[in-house]
Design a protein around this nucleic acid. Structure first.
Length: 628
RNA sequence: GGACUCGUGGCUCAGCCUGGAUAGAGCAAGCGGCUUCGAACCGCUAGGUCGAGGGUUCAAAUCCCUUCGAGCCCUCCA
């Protein structure tokens, strides 16, 4: 507990006061105060106005007087504000000691929401027929950040990546290789995933448009692909795994890790679908349609005015959504696990093993990647389908809210960036399209950013070795991209502009990382080993106390972020920390002071800031360089 | 036509869930600050009827209703 401690103390004292005054037990707020109104404030007087038949102003005075008679460790004084708010001023000597000594612990910022229970987070889940583009990156970064936050909130997190290796998009590149003569080796050492996406996929779909008779080849290929035993399926497996390997390299480069790769082709062959199909029929969740436009299909009835949704086509094949049902049920552990697990050859950023599903390799110890609670990160355009899945899962499973669809708005291209890709949009933003080749690849953005940052770093540090510069540029470029993808609300569209994305000033990761580098420099130059055995009463400057306070809010922010699946909360917190530190940095000279005790206290604070920021940035998958 | 999301200074956003005290940032604009704890920074100035209308309330950017604008979904596509 940190800043929460003073909030709890005030809360319990106020409860006692209203009890002593024989007032009814209301739920009032006790929150961090707005700047200029003390440290903590409560709306309690407003809520008591009716019952006490007095104005909030009078009530707050009564409460303020009563509070001064309470046992209070952390509150120095109260203020009955004319507005009606009851404000509290902290005893900063005690509170600083409490917060700063907590901040030196490895567990600082930990909160217990999960009670060490299992949770599944699924993200990425991109068709393995192309390189990842900037839109996919939002999914990946949101998913990875959420899984880090949930881990901090005491959940045991399993991260899954669903490999959709059997759909039409995969069939299309196979048609390209098998029928349109694309070489299996990319030209000029191009990365295989880029080659498949930029060349094979785009040009193959172009051919369909010119010659509709090719549709026949496409359909047959899809059928063979899903058949499993066919040569096409074996070839598809080789190709998609090569693409997947390229995609994973991009993810790992972004500091993203997984626990298990689930292959759709194996889910299809596992027989899970027939079990679920049977269950759906038994539970009367689906109906066979005898007439109308969906005649001979199995459908899920629409809710209210919604249209019925076809699950099994009249030719007996399952639709897209039908493939998701057994997978969702599997994730929730509602079905016997049909899979064996193999290690995937990988060196992940978190050093953990990466597993993949297998239907045949029995040689490894059994694994469990399911959980009672599942978070699936998918574009909000799929909201309707996800809602159907969520409703079904609620009927299978008695636990409410066990299946969560975490939706987010898409990433579009700015008019200027679309123009550089050859699309004139008349000033409007443009939706990306893999099929049309209208996208910005993640790898290219990372590379551009990295080059820019290498340039910037060289300007500042002519003495640095190339290796050191490279390491900094890696950290800052990934940080910049990840931060841009996470800092705003999930339901806001991100309009990606290539030129603007290279900005390294203002509300960006480099701003935050720079604060860390500045602090590191102070610690390095001080020549003192920071410790918490200092006189906290010496920290009295406003900028010092603001920084202590912001540090103390860490676990409150983690709690908020984990409860609401809101990664941006942590991003904003990192920014707030950096702002507080920069203000401190301008106002207070740490190393100039003649007073050794004061110097020690300030160094303790600077180190506390660094430790806290490092932990907070880690939740965003961003590293903090000592120099930049 | 139906469902969902968004609408806050020139631009990009925070605040809305859980109503209260002066609506906060960044970019862009103007001005100022490096003989060093790193200027990828800081300070100052200017810029807002919180899309519009109504309702609830002592109190509405925040809750409810209506409406306008933008986006997106509504295939036996995936």
């Amino acid at each position: 507990m940190t800043f929460q401690t003073i909030i709890d103390e005030i809360q319990s004292n106020l409860k006692k006061i209203i009890h002593d005054l024989s007032l009814s037990d209301i739920s009032f707020s006790v929150d961090v105060a707005k700047p200029g109104f003390g440290d903590v404030s409560s709306n309690i007087a407003f809520l008591l106005a009716k019952e006490m038949k007095k104005s909030p102003k009078e009530i707050t005075q009564i409460l303020s007087d009563a509070y001064s008679k309470c046992d209070s460790v952390l509150v120095l004084k109260t203020e009955a504000h004319p507005s009606g708010y009851l404000n509290f001023f902290a005893n900063w000597t005690k509170l600083s000691k409490l917060i700063l000594s907590q901040s030196y612990l490895d567990t600082f910022g930990d909160v217990n929401i999960g009670n060490n229970s299992n949770i599944v987070v699924e993200h990425t889940s991109v068709n393995p027929n192309k390189a990842l583009h900037i839109g996919h990156i939002r999914n990946i970064v949101v998913g990875d950040t959420i899984s880090r936050i949930l881990t901090k909130a005491n959940y045991k997190v399993n991260v899954l990546n669903y490999i959709d290796d059997s759909g039409l998009q995969v069939a299309d590149i196979i048609v390209g290789f098998k029928h349109f003569g694309f070489d299996e080796e990319p030209p000029n050492g191009k990365k295989f995933d880029h080659y498949c996406g930029d060349d094979v996929y785009v040009k193959t779909t172009q051919k369909y448009e010119l010659d509709s008779s090719l549709e026949e080849i496409r359909k047959n290929t899809l059928k063979e692909l899903e058949d499993g035993d066919s040569e096409t399926a074996a070839f598809g497996d080789i190709i998609t795994r090569k693409v997947l390997s390229g995609q994973l390299q991009t993810c790992w480069n972004l500091n993203v890790s997984y626990d298990c790769l689930n292959f759709e082709s194996q889910i299809i062959r596992s027989g899970l679908w027939s079990k679920i199909f049977k269950k759906l029929k038994e539970m009367d969740l689906i109906e066979f349609e005898n007439q109308g436009k969906n005649a001979q299909c199995w459908v899920i009835r629409g809710d209210g005015k919604e249209e019925d949704k076809v699950i099994v086509r009249s030719n007996g094949t399952a639709t897209y959504i039908a493939k998701d049902i057994p997978y969702a049920a599997w994730k929730l552990g509602l079905l016997d696990d049909p899979f064996y697990y193999q290690k995937y050859d990988a060196h992940q950023p978190n050093c953990k093993n990466l597993w993949q599903t297998s239907l045949t390799d029995e040689s490894n110890t059994p694994q469990n990647f399911t959980a009672q609670k599942v978070v699936t990160v998918i574009d909000s355009r799929q909201e309707r389908l996800q809602k159907i899945i969520t409703t079904l899962m609620e009927k299978f499973n008695s636990t409410p809210n066990s299946y969560v669809h975490l939706g987010y708005e898409s990433v579009t291209l700015s008019s200027d960036t679309a123009k550089t890709l050859g699309l004139e949009t008349d000033g409007k933003q443009a939706q990306m399209s893999g099929r049309k080749g209208l996208y910005v690849s993640a790898d290219s953005v990372c590379e551009l950013l990295k080059q820019k940052i290498i340039e910037e770093t060289k300007k500042r540090h002519s003495e640095m070795s190339d290796a050191e510069i490279d390491k900094i540029a890696q950290s800052v470029s990934i940080g910049t991209l990840r931060y841009e993808m996470i800092k705003q609300d999930l339901d806001k569209i991100i309009t990606f502009d290539l030129a603007k994305s290279l900005s390294l000033e203002g509300d960006t990761a480099p701003y935050i990382q720079y604060a860390y580098a500045r602090a590191s420099r102070i610690l390095e130059k001080s020549g003192i080993k920071p410790n918490i055995d200092v006189d906290f009463s010496l920290l009295q400057e406003k900028s010092e106390l603001d920084l202590v306070k912001t540090i103390g809010l860490f676990n409150l922010q983690v709690r908020d972020a984990a409860n609401n699946f809101a990664p941006k909360v942590v991003a904003r917190y990192c920014h707030d920390l950096a702002v507080s530190f920069n203000s401190f940095y301008e106002h207070v000279k740490v190393l100039d002071s003649d007073n050794d005790a004061l110097k020690s206290a300030r160094i303790c604070l600077v180190n506390s800031f660094n430790l806290t920021l490092e932990k907070a940035l880690d939740l965003l998958g961003i590293s903090a360089p000592n120099k930049m």
